Lab assay of single mutants.
Amino acid sequence: DDLEQFAKQFKQRRIKLGFTQADVGLALGTLYGNVFSQTTICRFEALQLSFKNMCKLKPLLNKWLEEAD
């Protein structure tokens, strides 16, 4: 599944880049005006958010990865 794959890759890249889940949540706030909690990022990576929320977060996290690289 696409979302599952993305969540896995996101977590690996985030760790490799040296960011915590909280860092990502704050960075999203800075970039897009939407601060996300560490818990939200954690749940995303664990696929524990609703499908709708996963779909909403994915493009933001994808963009963040591009910026962070």
Rank of each mutant, 00 (worst) to 15 (best):
D1N: 15
D2E: 13
D2R: 11
L3E: 07
L3Y: 09
L3W: 05
L3Q: 07
A7V: 12
A7P: 03
A7S: 15
A7R: 04
A7C: 10
A7F: 04
K8V: 07
Q9V: 10
Q9W: 10
F10M: 04
F10P: 01
F10R: 06
F10H: 02
F10A: 02
K11H: 05
K11A: 09
Q12A: 12
Q12M: 07
Q12N: 06
R13K: 12
R13H: 09
R14L: 02
R14G: 01
R14A: 02
R14F: 02
I15K: 08
I15P: 06
I15S: 11
I15V: 08
I15L: 09
I15H: 01
K16R: 12
K16Q: 13
G18H: 03
G18A: 06
G18S: 01
G18V: 01
G18R: 06
G18K: 06
F19S: 01
F19E: 06
F19K: 07
F19M: 13
T20L: 02
T20S: 12
T20M: 04
Q21K: 09
Q21P: 10
Q21I: 15
Q21W: 09
Q21R: 10
Q21L: 09
Q21H: 12
A22I: 08
A22G: 09
A22R: 11
A22S: 09
A22N: 02
A22M: 05
D23A: 12
D23V: 00
D23L: 03
V24P: 04
V24C: 06
V24H: 01
V24N: 03
V24G: 04
V24F: 15
V24D: 01
G25R: 09
G25V: 02
G25N: 03
G25Q: 04
L26C: 13
L26T: 06
A27D: 05
A27T: 07
A27N: 01
A27V: 06
A27W: 12
A27Q: 15
A27P: 02
A27L: 07
L28N: 03
L28R: 00
L28M: 05
L28W: 00
G29S: 15
G29K: 13
G29R: 14
G29A: 14
T30G: 13
T30N: 08
T30Y: 07
T30C: 08
L31V: 10
L31A: 09
L31Y: 08
Y32F: 13
Y32M: 04
Y32R: 07
G33W: 03
G33F: 02
G33H: 03
N34D: 12
N34E: 15
N34K: 14
N34Q: 11
N34M: 10
N34A: 13
N34T: 12
N34Y: 09
V35T: 15
V35G: 10
F36W: 03
F36Y: 13
F36V: 14
S37I: 01
S37G: 07
S37C: 04
S37W: 02
S37F: 02
S37H: 12
Q38I: 06
Q38Y: 10
Q38G: 13
T39S: 12
T39D: 14
T39Y: 02
T39M: 06
T39V: 09
T39H: 14
T39L: 10
T40Q: 12
T40V: 11
T40D: 07
T40G: 01
T40S: 06
T40Y: 05
C42I: 15
C42V: 08
C42R: 14
C42T: 11
C42S: 11
C42D: 14
R43M: 05
F44H: 00
F44R: 00
F44K: 04
F44C: 11
F44P: 00
F44W: 05
F44G: 02
E45G: 00
E45M: 02
E45V: 00
E45S: 04
A46T: 11
A46S: 12
A46G: 13
A46C: 09
L47T: 05
L47F: 09
L47M: 15
L47R: 14
Q48D: 04
Q48W: 07
Q48K: 10
Q48P: 02
L49D: 02
L49V: 00
L49S: 04
L49M: 12
L49W: 13
S50G: 05
S50K: 09
S50P: 14
S50T: 07
F51G: 11
F51M: 10
F51V: 14
F51R: 14
F51I: 06
F51H: 14
N53T: 14
N53Y: 08
N53S: 09
N53Q: 13
M54H: 06
M54T: 03
M54L: 07
M54P: 00
M54R: 01
M54Q: 04
C55S: 12
C55R: 15
C55T: 10
C55A: 13
C55K: 13
C55H: 10
K56Y: 03
K56A: 10
K56S: 10
K56E: 12
K56H: 05
K56D: 11
K56L: 12
L57W: 07
L57A: 05
L57Y: 02
L57S: 05
K58W: 00
K58A: 08
K58S: 02
K58P: 02
P59C: 12
P59G: 11
P59T: 07
P59I: 10
P59R: 08
P59A: 05
L60V: 09
L61A: 02
L61P: 00
L61E: 00
N62G: 14
N62W: 03
N62D: 14
N62K: 11
N62L: 11
N62C: 10
N62Q: 13
K63Q: 12
K63H: 10
K63T: 08
W64L: 01
W64I: 03
W64M: 02
L65Q: 03
L65E: 07
L65I: 06
L65G: 00
L65C: 01
E66V: 10
E66I: 14
E66N: 15
E66L: 07
E67G: 12
E67R: 13
A68V: 15
D69P: 11
